[in-house]
Design a protein around this nucleic acid. Structure first.
Lengths: 136, 136
DNA sequence: CGGGATCCTACTCGATACTG
DNA sequence: CAGTATCGAGTAGGATCCCG
């Protein structure tokens, strides 16, 4: 596990000019916008599911366990609007619609994976912290 | 900008065993837990604000623009429970309470910064994608 | 100063039913 | 198959007042 200083050092030049106004103090517009978009229950899971290539609507719904038809529609529409996914409708019977990540959507995959790894690495520590906190 | 394959390659060993069940298909328990914790409107902004060291409650509220007293209290309590921040109350008059990141909270800073940088880098592209989508 | 207790609103999300 | 439409419950989050 590398500590934060390594990354922080490599990012020092851009850190104060770019991150300061968005992650830390101030209004954090960019960060808040991002969280409004993909900080919800499903968006990152959908993006993760699309990482291997295009999928049709029903296949997507089968893989993202528990998502309702409605939410899948809504989230896909929103992500399409933001330029994160493409929607390709094939004029056939029965209809076939495929969704895929755009180049920009793919670049989001990188920090998303980093976050997912953190989640996996620390989920047990968090559970323990929780338990000991609740004991008091 | 590096594409995703570089990181994906360096993480290949753990990717399928660790990320697969959480970011992509399946129930995505770890990822969902993480989003439930820090995927809200304020948590990551608070963590970002604490990156330079301990701050008192009122100072925190002044820096995280727009947060209500209530939400700051709630989020800090939740993050303390999860072992992400520490709360130190000094027995003085007037009372002084300081919050700081735990080591685990600091490690979360790393992927959080990566995400913040992505947000900054892509906010304009997203705004443009939105505009052109709405035009149709 | 650093909260706790309440009240209230707006929006999210799920379930269900219907359609091209 | 891939949606759209509608309803209803739950909840995040803001405003306000009070307390040690």
């Amino acid at each position: 596990m590398s500590d934060t200083s390594e990354l922080a050092e490599s990012l020092r030049v851009s850190f104060e000019t770019d991150v300061e106004p968005c992650l830390g103090s101030g209004d954090g517009r960019a960060m808040r916008d991002l969280l409004d978009r993909v900080g919800d229950k499903w968006s990152l899971l959908i993006i993760g599911t699309l990482r291997d290539g295009a999928l049709r609507f029903s296949e997507l719904q089968r893989r993202v366990t528990g998502i309702s038809q409605r939410m899948l529609t809504l989230k896909l529409r929103s992500m399409q609007r933001d330029g994160l996914v493409t929607r390709t409708a094939h004029a056939e019977v029965p209809p076939r619609v495929e969704y895929a990540l755009t180049p920009m959507g793919t670049t989001l995959l990188e920090p998303a994976i980093a976050l997912a790894l953190w989640a996996v690495d620390n989920q047990q520590a968090i559970a323990e912290a929780r338990a000991s906190f609740d004991a008091a």
